[in-house]
């Protein structure tokens, strides 16, 4: 076999005239990489399972008043909002933890383009997943009210939907940021849980006991500030909270992480 095949082994002579790799191709590849691994598969499977359980419990245990579009949407959207940022984390960290970066960055030595493609992919997944959640929620609402013989309650406006998508995209970017900053799968996932849950509880406890922190909390607690996006239209003050917390908890660490990543050595 070998001898026959090797006869045809000639380097391509047209290589000098090859076209550059376009960014949309890199985004497509990075999207595919998010879901083509074993861990990617199980993360998606866990989203589907928890969404199914949550939807079922809304139907089984919810009173008639609970069978609203918002509740169905949340049942599917909440597990996505928690789990999908881990996909954004792994998208960056696996290049180092699994060392696949040795191939990725040899094929595209311009790291900015790879990282930019990963960022676009994370935003796309963040937006698309919430649209899927809202879509499934709509189906659930229609089916369930038809079965119960009640009229559907459409309590999520288009504007609310946009805020939900924005909130989830910010969550995806948080995962992306932690991946860029820490560049280790285990470390970044632990940091993500501290960031999203431990820190939130600690801030809540502090706010209960210290009046000064109770007042300052919306300017410091990023999860608290962003949570209003899932509860309807934020006020101007609340937008300022979202912007300021995103600056200190997202933009600053991301900038530091990107600077270090660009200079690092791929081994």
């Amino acid at each position: 076999m070998t001898a026959v095949v090797i006869e045809k082994l000639r380097p391509s002579r047209t290589a000098a005239a090859v076209a550059p790799v376009p960014l949309n191709r890199l985004i497509h590849v990075e999207l595919r990489k998010m879901f083509d691994t074993r861990s990617g598969f199980w993360l998606i499977a866990s989203v589907a399972m928890t969404a199914l359980v949550a939807t079922a419990s809304v139907i089984l245990f919810g009173r008639d008043g609970d069978l609203t579009y918002a509740n169905f949407g949340k049942a599917v959207g909440f597990p996505m909002a928690v789990i999908l940022p881990m996909i954004a984390i792994l998208s960056v960290t696996s290049e180092w933890s699994q060392r696949s970066g040795l191939t990725t960055f040899a094929l595209v030595p311009n790291r900015k383009r790879v990282i930019l493609a990963k960022a676009y992919a994370a935003v796309a997944v963040g937006a698309a997943s919430m649209l899927v959640a809202l879509g499934i929620g709509a189906v659930g609402t229609v089916v369930c009210t038809a079965v119960n013989g009640t009229s559907p309650v459409w309590d999520v406006s288009v504007v609310d939907g946009v805020y939900i998508v924005l909130g989830n995209v910010l969550g995806m970017l948080t995962g992306f940021m932690l991946g860029v900053l820490i560049r280790s799968s285990a470390g970044a996932i632990v940091a993500y849980f501290v960031y999203s849950f431990v820190l939130g509880s600690a801030f809540a406890l502090l706010a209960q006991n210290q009046q000064w922190f109770h007042d300052a909390r919306p300017w410091i607690d990023v999860n608290y500030a962003q949570s209003v996006l899932f509860e309807g239209a934020p006020s101007a003050q609340e937008w300022a909270h979202i912007g300021f917390t995103a600056l200190i908890w997202l933009v600053v660490p991301l900038t530091i992480g990107l600077r270090r990543l660009m200079r690092s050595e791929i081994k």
């Binding site: 790799v21 696949s100 191939t103």
Partner: peptide, 20 residues
Amino acid sequence: PNPGRQVGVLLDASAQHAGR
């Protein structure tokens, strides 16, 4: 422009994603 078409690189055979 398209490094993969111009230079083939194998630096460490172990450096592949184990889950793919």
